[in-house]
């Protein structure tokens, strides 16, 4: 009896890596020559690298119960900022450093705006970030004068998006770094705890002393930061800055996060899940391509994957309530609130 129980618990715990493993095995069997090669895996990771960077930051906003749909726009704006700065400093390496700083700052600034508006006025993040998406794309148009700004040098900049380190394309290092940082912040800092708490139950969180306003702002700033980083990588990869860059990336970001088991209500989910989601979609797309399935089916497949992934997660979550780490956290928070409420009642 106990043996089967522990097996089920194991499967539950490693549910996501198992799914990926199964997928990889199946695809290897179907396409032995093309799929299971180093260059193909490199290709998969490279394909998810841009929105993978965005995911690492946007997950903070979703864990908060919000959302950031302006990531594509911020990427375009930061790319423009960076490239223009580099040109202003005559394509020098100093210019590259300053340019990257400028781009990241632009992203953080937009994130700060998001955080302040959403937190102060308690407005739906969905609509606000859609509106700022328009504004930021407009700003990018003004900045670039609606021209394509080409940037072929210096090598220090083009390396970011197009270079290779030990045979692995550089953007893959960037997404790995961002995901790792995200993991550390979410799981090993007080701030991460506060993000989960605010998302799970904002009232309880603020009663427990979590600085909700600051946490919200910080989450959106982080989301803006990673979107900016992604934009800089994109500009380097394409060796140009255009006002229409990164269109539609918010869709991929959302898909990855949702498929990875993060709840849009907030308080539940993990960066590992989000990266899993990104990989799942990436591997499936890659597999479909290798099998000759035309790319027009990819949107269709993505939609179906989301449905399957989220319903599967829902059902499995229901059968094992309370076993998830964040579930435990919510239980704890609820208990705290109950204690607080009892204290209130006793006061005359």
């Amino acid at each position: 009896m106990s043996k089967t129980m522990s097996a089920r618990v194991l499967i539950q715990k490693f549910q996501r890596p198992l799914i990926l493993l199964v997928l990889v095995v199946v695809l290897t069997l179907l396409q032995p020559d093309a799929f299971a090669t180093v260059s193909n895996f490199k290709s998969i990771f490279l394909a998810i690298s841009i929105y993978g960077v965005m995911v690492s930051g946007s997950i903070f906003t979703i864990l908060l119960g919000g959302i950031d749909l302006a990531v594509g726009a911020v990427a375009a704006l930061s790319g423009a900022c960076t490239v223009l700065t580099i040109i202003a400093f005559n394509y020098s390496d100093i210019g590259v450093i300053l340019g990257i700083l400028a781009g990241l700052l632009a992203g953080c600034f937009v994130g700060l705006m998001h955080g302040v508006i959403i937190s102060k006025f308690r407005v739906p993040a969905f609509l606000i970030t859609v509106a700022t998406m328009n504004i930021v794309y407009g700003a990018a148009e003004l900045l670039t004068g609606n021209q394509t700004i080409n940037i072929i040098s210096p090598a220090s900049f083009t390396f970011v998006g197009g270079g290779q380190l030990f045979g692995i394309p550089f953007p893959i290092y960037i997404v790995a770094l961002m995901a790792f940082l995200s993991f550390i912040i979410l799981n090993m800092t007080v701030f991460g705890r506060q993000v989960y708490a605010t998302g799970g139950n904002p009232v309880a969180a603020s009663l427990s002393g979590v600085p909700v306003f600051r946490t919200t702002c910080a989450a959106y700033i982080i989301s803006g930061f990673t979107a900016a980083a992604a934009g800089i990588v994109l500009a380097s990869m394409n060796q140009q800055a255009i006002s229409k860059a990164a269109q539609g990336y918010e869709n991929d970001v959302l898909t990855a996060i949702v498929v990875g088991g993060t709840s849009l209500m907030g308080g539940e989910g993990s960066i590992q899940g989000a990266i899993f989601g990104a990989l799942l979609v990436g591997i499936l797309n890659n597999g479909l391509r290798l099998m000759g399935v035309s790319s027009i089916y990819h949107t269709l497949v993505k939609g179906i994957i989301i449905i399957i992934a989220v319903s599967f997660d829902f059902y499995s979550r229901n059968r094992n309530s309370g076993l998830l780490r964040t579930g435990r956290l919510r239980l704890w928070m609820a208990r705290q609130v109950a204690i607080l409420m009892k204290e209130e009642k006793h006061q005359p």
Partner: peptide, 15 residues
């Protein structure tokens, strides 16, 4: 677009 040309080419190189 350059961006999409890049992505499409990557797909071709994979396949």
């Amino acid at each position: 677009l350059t961006e999409k040309g890049n992505t499409v080419m990557r797909d071709f190189l994979t396949k």
